[in-house]
Design a protein around this nucleic acid. Sequence first.
DNA 1: TGCGGTACTCACCCGAAGGTGAGCACCCCC
DNA 2: GGGGGTGCTCACCTTCGGGTGAGTACCGCA
Lengths: 120, 120
Amino acid sequence: MATSARQGPYFCGIDAAMDVVTGKWKSLILWELQEHGTRRFAELRRGLPGVSEKMLVQHLREMEEDGLVDRKVYPVVPPKVEYSLTEHGVSLNAALESLAGWGQARIERIGADKISVEAA
Amino acid sequence: MATSARQGPYFCGIDAAMDVVTGKWKSLILWELQEHGTRRFAELRRGLPGVSEKMLVQHLREMEEDGLVDRKVYPVVPPKVEYSLTEHGVSLNAALESLAGWGQARIERIGADKISVEAA
DNA sequence: TGCGGTACTCACCCGAAGGTGAGCACCCCC
DNA sequence: GGGGGTGCTCACCTTCGGGTGAGTACCGCA
């Protein structure tokens, strides 16, 4: 199953962090939630151009299981679900910041294209 | 091809860093080279229990292309090749350190098993 | 003389990650 | 009253990462 089955034996901390962060969209979800504080499902979908609903649900479930995001369901008539970062999610994001800096430098070094997310 | 074809458009720095670091053994290779400075192919293989030769070669080639490792071939009669980190490799490792710290904390939090590498 | 080591390459296979498209239960708005 | 939005689930399919095992050219050592 996709749910759980993680938490395998690790070689080192990197392994453990990677385990939680790998997945095409997870770091982006983390970022999106960090930026906006709280987002509804459809807002996240719109914020991550190209993500499929299935993957978004799946990643969110895994991240919830890993204690990174908080899922709050409002039992209202048009469904409403809000996602936000837990303290672990916030600290993971902080830990990713130096990596983001390195990646940014790499982008400039190799002159890769960048998809602007902040616009639109 | 596995070689190049990376450097696709990125959403953010994390993407770019992840692109370079994903691969089952890459972070371990980074770590191993950081610890030992310079390693021969067979030394790396022995240092990473479970890695297949194919994956080791493949990852090393990609990391060489990405400018993370330096490959020095000695044209001697029993082949001799030495791998070491470039400055970019070293700085990537530094950027990974906070992530490693987070992962370490997570390991302790969830009480996961850990494969000891420093022993043996 | 033949086995093991050195640093690989090549061909093949498997399973998981991720994408596609449909359906659902209920509502509001035009 | 039907089209669109809300948050999903399910089934199917493709792609790709990674593993397996063989082969290679040459050597040193027992």
